[in-house]
Design a protein around this nucleic acid. Sequence first.
DNA 1: TTGTAGGCGTTATCAA
DNA 2: TTGATAACGCCTACAA
Lengths: 357, 357
Amino acid sequence: MPRTSRTRSESPRATSIYDVAQEARVSVFTVSAVVNKKEGVSAALTRRVEAAIAKLHYRPNLLARSLARQKTQTIGVIVSDIANPFFPDIVRAIEDSAQNAGYSALLCNSDDNAEKEARYIELLLSKRVDGIILNKASGPLSAAHRKLFTDQNVPIVLLMRSCANLKADLVRTDDEHGAALATAHLARIGYRRIGLVSGPLDNSTGRSRRQGYLKTLEENNLAVPEELLFEGDYRIDSGFRAGLALLPRRPEAVLVTNYLMTVGFMKAADEIGMRCPEDFALVSFDDFPWVSCFRPRLTTIELPKYELGEAATRTLLERIEGNTARATTTTLTPQLRVRESCGFMLRTREAREPLLI
Amino acid sequence: MPRTSRTRSESPRATSIYDVAQEARVSVFTVSAVVNKKEGVSAALTRRVEAAIAKLHYRPNLLARSLARQKTQTIGVIVSDIANPFFPDIVRAIEDSAQNAGYSALLCNSDDNAEKEARYIELLLSKRVDGIILNKASGPLSAAHRKLFTDQNVPIVLLMRSCANLKADLVRTDDEHGAALATAHLARIGYRRIGLVSGPLDNSTGRSRRQGYLKTLEENNLAVPEELLFEGDYRIDSGFRAGLALLPRRPEAVLVTNYLMTVGFMKAADEIGMRCPEDFALVSFDDFPWVSCFRPRLTTIELPKYELGEAATRTLLERIEGNTARATTTTLTPQLRVRESCGFMLRTREAREPLLI
DNA sequence: TTGTAGGCGTTATCAA
DNA sequence: TTGATAACGCCTACAA
């Protein structure tokens, strides 16, 4: 058989299964069987092969294996931006879970840009990943791409954001509930003019959080303060602009639907010279270990990031292993963490003071 | 030629270069030439091939290409933990730069654990990545692994931490200088009992920062307060323990050498009931957009994270493209950002007061 | 300019 | 139990 003169590369080829077979005086089949721990290779040959492997430092070329097996043991992960602190924990969980199951993760940042996302999807598919975890950019999926997924039979699980024209597994948090928790908390404290800094309304997360907010206002017989609604894009700058726009209109409280926008919002408050919670109350989305260390301590809606990543990976791997049941939605429950930025302590103290007079 | 009956898989094969060749009534060579935009294919055939590609939605299998070309257009990235806020920006930069040059990034978390790191290195090598960016775990590299790199001719660039027995390119920040800047600033304000919460001293970063601190104490004729030195591991909990250990000993100031440990340290201060900067001054390492929004505003040594990732990728890609010059070290300069936690404002006010009496 | 066929390093089928 | 050999899908030296 081939393996003749090494025409192309001058650098010595890495030792292949042929070299091992030759060294151990067996066929490549036997080497392959030993490497893959298959039953039924005699002890004698197994020993010889193992010795040859050790001697030659043989390591199977996973590229060739992937090509032959039609399986790469690799998943693609597309998030909008790993530098957004919402994602690192999720990606960490994905990588952990994938690795434990023998998979690696290819990381992509879409910047919530449909074109970039489309390019990444094609790339991942060309690289023949076994599945994709997708934090979908705003907007629908192109028909061509949808066809690609089904044609190539590559499972995909949606992370956080659903996609109108793609019925795939979805792993998300209960955003409407989260926003409702936050809004209800503010209403309970006694605020009536409660503003909202939402995410983009062309995706499910942004809409759900807004919905939870609106529903709760209604439940509390609070009018929707149209001049206190702001649509951001989950980035710092939009939070900053939201602050500049909303704070002069004197909201009593505001719900900011992610951490980065809260950061921008607080910057704006600094510039304007308004303090939280004295001049306005705030509840933020997403919790981090450091928010309880600095003032104002943010009252937040905690999103179980690591669990999100775990669930997404678990779901994807099940699909890869052959689960063909219909698409599921896994919804994790967020939690309200009351601290200081909502002015809870403040109000209760104020409320007590009149009694003291 | 082969491509006979489809023995193995029942699911329809993805369209391959052969299908395109057949559809366009040309040879695979011609298709390959068109796909790779090689000179010298007649306009007529080019048209036919392109039509066939479009009709069949052909996308080259990058796995097969990698195997044939002996190049995967993929780099491996091993960091201790993407959930540590120091890394997301770096990884983002790496992914951006890699993508721009036509490479993808495989992400791995070593948890600063030598065994885990070793497993990842073997995995990446087996996957035939074209190069590796390594934020080395503490401890030397095993001889076997060093041999692997040279044998397989896979370039590697070290990120932040050097490695005693591996002469490879290194991209890092000037940690000694950074720590010196911080310490000098504290000394200038007038503190004399300055503590240190260092990282692990078995790696270069931890040692350098400690060295910068010690050197600067000496330059300022300050004794080393042995009871105010604490060796942490860059995680929150070690910062917390550092706080519990050091704060009761009443340091005037403390240099905490990363953000997560600062978070733990502040938690400890909260529990003990000591305030920053009133009861102790603090300078932290690493800066984030949100540190200026919450109190106390941290005075920090800013590390150019994105630039670090860019430089590491650039260096690696040059090696991959064939640069064989001797190993280089790229050192980026950190910067002092004076805010409130160092007590600068406080002290200057106090300093003025006596004059007012 | 285009085609033929061998090689990349595995896996897996089918004989022996 | 083992071996020979055809895939996997692409690239490319060499021939035509």
